[in-house]
Design a protein around this nucleic acid. Structure first.
Length: 427
RNA sequence: GGAGAGGUGGCCGAGUGGUCGAAGGCGCGCGCUUGGAAAGCGCGUACUCGGGAGACCGGGUCGCAGGUUCGAAUCCUGUCCUCUCCGCCA
């Protein structure tokens, strides 16, 4: 969410930002309603002020003058009520528009309609070559007794999987390695709720918009208090301090969240159907930074969380590239987004493994997440997040890249300690 | 699952339907005091919206949403959350 006062002063910046992102947004409607609203508020508050002043006198009056005052108060009450009712639809629509209003992209973001306009920043590592016919992760994992997709389908439907044996150890090893790395870099590990209230999803800017992608858990006693399964611990971790006024000395807050992630993957029928690339449930270590409202600091933090993820990839000896997402591929809330894509031989293509986003105040305003600066002024925080490692996609890249003739897989040096010192995965 | 208690400022904690944005305390800030500090004393310490260049003026906020009333922190309803006891149980 943006600052309405800022929008009033910079309608063109908002308009241009929405256009660049390809998100239809009517700034003029918002400004018109805002003007109307403020007009009404003025009138309403006048009546309210008279009501309050006269109301205070009522207690001291008696007889005729009291009756007279009460009569006038009834009138005022009706008037205030009328204005309040006139205000309600205005406020609702303004709120709706404010939640939908996209964050204008940063200057360095390439303008384009979709991911085809993403700009390559760098490629790191060598794509592997094989003197044998390489297998994809499904063949590898099945061969190694690590995966059962068929029975998972019976049990839970499509886009489900069962990890077995070394598959479980490998997943845990990768996650643990990520936890150790991010902990060494000064982040506080958290294990957070994955079942959350709707406001947390609205606050992190997933809602409105991602409702169909999100699993809903009904609350039979209160329909508007349903809970939802998060698609990433970013939601829970970022919302953790919502409503608080933090001390500037506490910032930056650096968290890492370990959690399962749930995604309905509605509207992706027929897309990425093979294997465990696109699934309803996986595990992830996510990094979140909450810091002061300073653009340069946000930029530095963005580089930091990107570097954390790149280090993880390098330790796993995975070739990858970093792209800066174009305006059409970054979503409504982001100011700027970098993706890391790992080379996946089974796809003969890069596949997204990390998404590093900086939001400036966009999430913080929705979450009412603030801090008191050194001048004692209350300001909104800046938030950022990035994956450290996501279990399934990391395993795909790792197994496919490090496979050897015969279907065994070499375990990269840095991961060995987490796999009991083993050199390879083999039958 | 059953029974009960409670949600008030950064924290603790008062609060009779009407000068309550809220006593008192802690904490914090400034000042006095002191050789310096502690103690003591004095003063100041929520957020937000609208108007205004500003001093300031006005509205709102006592978990949240409604309701009663001229007027609600206070009464009523719903809901969320916390705590206690009983039951059940990984």
């Amino acid at each position: 969410m943006l600052d309405l006062a800022w929008i009033r002063e910079n309608p063109d910046a908002v308009r241009e930002g929405a256009e660049k992102k390809g998100i239809p947004f009517d700034v003029d409607e918002l400004l018109r309603l805002d003007e109307e609203r403020r007009q009404l508020i003025r009138v309403q508050e006048q009546a309210k002020a008279e009501q309050n002043a006269l109301g205070k006198q009522v207690a001291t009056l008696s007889g005729d003058s009291k009756q007279q005052a009460l009569g006038r108060l009834k009138q005022l009450k009706a008037k205030v009520q009328e204005h309040t009712e006139g205000l309600r639809p205005l406020k609702e629509r303004i709120e709706e528009l404010m939640l939908a209003c996209p964050n204008p992209p940063a200057d360095e973001v390439p303008v384009g309609p979709d991911e085809s306009a993403n700009k390559l920043l760098r490629e790191v590592g060598e794509k592997p070559t094989y003197d044998f016919e390489p297998k994809d992760h499904v063949a590898l994992m099945t061969g190694l007794g690590m995966l059962d997709i068929e029975r998972a389908g019976k049990l839970a439907g499509s886009r489900s999987y069962v990890l077995k044996g070394d598959g479980v150890f490998l997943e845990q090893a990768i996650l643990r390695m990520a936890m150790d790395l991010i902990h060494e870099r000064g982040y506080t590990l958290t294990s957070v709720p994955v079942i959350v209230k709707e406001w947390a999803l609205r606050g992190t800017a997933y809602f409105p918009g991602a409702e169909v992608q999100t699993y809903r858990i009904a609350n039979p006693t209160a329909e508007d208090e349903d809970s939802w399964l998060v698609g990433t611990s970013e939601v829970s971790v970022t919302a953790l301090h919502s409503g608080e006024i933090l001390d500037e000395a506490e910032l930056p807050i650096k968290y890492a969240g370990l959690s399962p992630c749930f995604r309905r993957e509605a509207g992706t029928y027929g897309k990425d159907t093979r294997g465990i690339y696109r699934v309803h449930q996986f595990n992830k270590v996510e990094q979140v930074i909450v810091d002061v409202g300073d653009v340069e600091k946000s930029r530095a933090n963005h580089e930091e969380i990107l570097d954390n993820a790149e280090t993880m990839m390098q330790k796993l000896e995975l070739p990858y590239r970093v792209v800066i997402c174009s305006t059409g591929d970054m979503g409504r809330g982001a100011r700027c987004k970098y993706d890391i894509e790992a080379w996946m031989p089974g796809r003969d293509a890069y596949g997204e493994t990390h998404s590093a986003t900086r939001f400036h105040e966009y999430q913080a305003r929705r979450l009412n997440l603030r801090y008191r600066d050194s001048d004692g002024k209350v300001r909104f925080c800046h938030t950022l997040n990035n994956t450290v490692i996501a279990s399934t996609r990391a395993m795909i890249a790792l197994l496919e890249v490090h496979q050897q003739a015969g279907g065994s897989v070499r375990i990269p040096e840095a991961l060995k300690p987490y796999m009991g010192g083993r050199e390879t995965l083999s039958v």
